[in-house]
Design a protein around this nucleic acid. Structure first.
Length: 596
RNA sequence: GGCGCUUUAGCUCAGUUGGUUAGAGCAACGGAAUCAUAAUCCGUGUGUCCUGUGUUCGAGUCACAGAAGCGCCA
């Protein structure tokens, strides 16, 4: 039986993520996972969707220090903060873990041990700047000084923002610590562990040759291989991280931790163990079933393009180097950036829309998160960077969700209600050519839609979904039940019966992209099972994890999985309230409407 | 600096292995209809397919050079 393992790149724990982070991996991964779960109800396949926060590294350590908060508490706070936001966006992780979990510490140390056993770990000495005032080694970006090339006063140890030169911290004139400002720096030697990736080049190439990845992913991977993959330092002189076990690597390493990019991808595995542990399952539930040598597992990773290197080379190097049969990625889906009016979303500059703000802006609308989900999927930066603009957001949401879909549901149910009350009018069973043509068309669209979903093609999926909705409006315009009913009530009943079934079809088909709205529509039909949630409702908003709705792969599948419909309710209020022009104008003035 | 991506209708983008009059959605304009949240449906596009050179019977589609924008560089 097929098993679909899905991971989204884990967001850095420090602070709130913006919409670009959301659309770059977690949201498309969620759409794909939801689709897989629904399809699983037809083909029996299982789905596991894992994510978490990336907790380690210097930025977190320093941020916590500045707030005078213990790092672990700082991390826990932001982890919970982010998890809550994602729940409210309807992200249906089976588990949202932490790279600072005990599970990850054990696994990371396990991999380091295995790599050492395989002879792939070297000890090398690095010379780095040490700040006495800060009591720590300074990573490149935390050293500032005057650029030797252009004289720019605030050049960083890795690069000069004045002239763009790539620098070494020791190049800087009058270097100082950007943490404390102290100039009391000195060079000290420090021993570090290196992963001998250069010895894994052949194995990696053989593996990558066999992969069916998108061009972008493959070309990035080959580029690194062609240039000769360099050995990589996997330890750091900081305190916050997975400790390097001195019993394995010696006392020189007692105060060191693994580099954040060494332990972060391992957290995919560790978070799966967290998931199993939480339910009291034994190790085979996460290991043998999902990660360790099960040939039935199909593994799909979602990430922004900046993460491709780590997922195509460095993480696989860890897995392959271990000599153990750990599951490696099968399908690697990478995204470009969402920009704010063509400029960068920037956390430090406060440019763009952050996920918590996005939720607040539409807090009055109970399916408001779907507005974001739908829009972001429609504009997913799949082949190129894609620009967020307020009027575009308004146009897509109002036109597609409110006018095309919302109005179809409303016009169908209102008209039916006037003529047949709350009962679903029975079909005569006599179908016209037009009915057949409509069915054929819906079937064609569903076939394409399913194929796009299987390939995790977001924009195309959204287009197909929209086509389904348009087909319903066209059918009504053609059949004119409001005219037919004056002379032939039975025929009008058949038309409406079909239109009402389309509503349910739409709800099931849109559930991966717009789960909240799908649930809202399904709730109009008392005979249809309501969604249940695995995740506790956060702030009154359920995540709708377990949708009991089979995927409508075809009309045949749709009908086979549908209980008979006899009654319905009119929606209370409007399914998709529109976003007003004044609202957009207000947001434009608040957040800006030009490139920064 | 190295490498890569992008450049197609006012806007956002599709265009498979090169093959006849280059497509979709939005916007705009015209019309139909009135069941519906004035929503819907139908119709309307003379676009140096960034530029240049080349390969070819034939190029948006391939090659080379260049321009602009963007990204990545562990």
């Amino acid at each position: 039986m097929k098993k679909h393992l899905i991971t989204s790149a884990i967001p850095y724990v420090n602070g709130v993520k913006h919409l670009g982070n959301l659309v770059g991996s977690m949201l498309p991964a969620d759409v794909y996972a939801r689709f897989r779960r629904q399809l699983g109800q037809l083909d029996g396949s299982e789905t596991l969707f894992i994510c978490g926060t990336d907790d380690h590294g210097t930025p977190v350590e320093i941020a916590a220090q500045k707030e005078n908060t213990p790092v672990a508490a700082f991390v826990q706070h932001w982890h919970d903060f982010q998890a809550d936001i994602y729940t409210r966006f309807g992200l249906s992780f089976d588990h949202f873990g932490s790279s600072s979990s005990p599970q990850n510490r054990i696994l990371t140390q396990h991999f380091a041990q295995k790599l050492k056993d395989a002879g792939l770990i070297d000890v090398r000495t690095q010379t780095m700047l040490y700040s006495k005032a800060d009591g720590r080694f300074l990573p490149d970006r935390y050293v500032e000084g005057t650029c030797p090339k252009c004289g720019f006063g605030k050049a960083r140890g890795d690069q000069c923002d004045g002239c763009g030169s790539v620098l070494d911290p020791t190049d800087l004139i009058e270097p100082y610590s950007s943490i404390s400002g102290s100039k009391d720096l000195e060079l000290r030697d420090s021993k570090h562990l290196y992963l001998k990736q250069s010895q894994l080049v052949d194995k990696l190439r053989t593996w990558i040759d066999a992969q069916n990845w998108p061009n972008l992913s493959k070309s990035i991977a080959y580029k690194w291989l062609d240039e000769g993959l360099e050995d990589r330092g996997i330890t750091r002189d900081i305190k916050w991280g997975v400790p390097v076990p001195p019993e394995v690597f010696g006392d020189d390493f007692a105060d060191k931790v693994f580099y954040v990019w060494f332990d972060a991808p391992i957290a995919y595995i560790a978070a799966t163990k967290e998931w199993a542990d939480k339910q009291g399952l034994d190790d085979s539930a996460w290991k043998d079933e999902w990660w360790f040598g099960n040939p039935d597992v199909q593994y799909t990773e979602f990430m922004g393009k900046d993460n491709v290197y780590f997922h195509t080379l460095s993480f696989p190097a860890t897995l392959i180097g271990s000599g153990e049969p750990w599951k490696k990625v099968d399908t690697l889906k990478s995204f470009n950036w969402l920009t704010y009016y063509g400029g960068k979303f920037s956390t430090s500059m406060g440019v763009g829309i952050f996920t918590d703000t996005a939720l607040e802006l539409l807090a009055d609308i109970d399916n408001g998160p779907d507005y974001w989900r739908y829009y972001l999927i429609a504009r997913a930066p799949e082949s190129d960077d894609s620009a967020f603009m307020w009027p575009d957001f308004q146009a897509v949401v109002n036109k597609d969700l409110a006018d095309v879909l919302g109005n179809f549901v409303n016009r169908t149910l209102q008209f039916t209600h006037k003529n047949f009350g709350n009962s679903v009018p029975a079909s005569s069973g006599n179908y016209t050519e037009a009915d057949q043509a409509c069915a054929t068309r819906l079937n064609d669209i569903l076939t394409r839609y399913t194929a796009h979903m299987e390939n995790a093609e977001m924009r195309r999926s959204q287009e197909a979904l929209r086509e389904l909705w348009v087909a319903g409006n066209e059918y009504l315009a053609e059949q004119e039940p409001w005219k037919v009913i004056k002379t032939d009530k039975e025929r009008a009943a058949t038309i409406l019966n079909l239109a009402i079934h389309m509503i349910v079809l739409y709800a099931r088909a849109m559930a991966p992209i717009c789960p909240f709205s799908a649930a809202k529509i399904i709730a109009l039909f008392p005979e249809l099972p309501a969604p249940t949630s695995m995740v506790p409702a956060a702030k009154g908003t359920p995540a709708h994890i377990n949708t009991p709705w089979a995927w409508p792969r075809s009309l045949k599948d749709f009908h086979a999985t549908l209980p008979s419909l006899t009654t319905f309710q009119l929606p209370e209020g409007v399914l998709f309230p529109k976003i007003a022009d004044e609202q957009i104008a207000d947001w434009e003035s608040r957040f800006g409407n030009q490139k920064v």
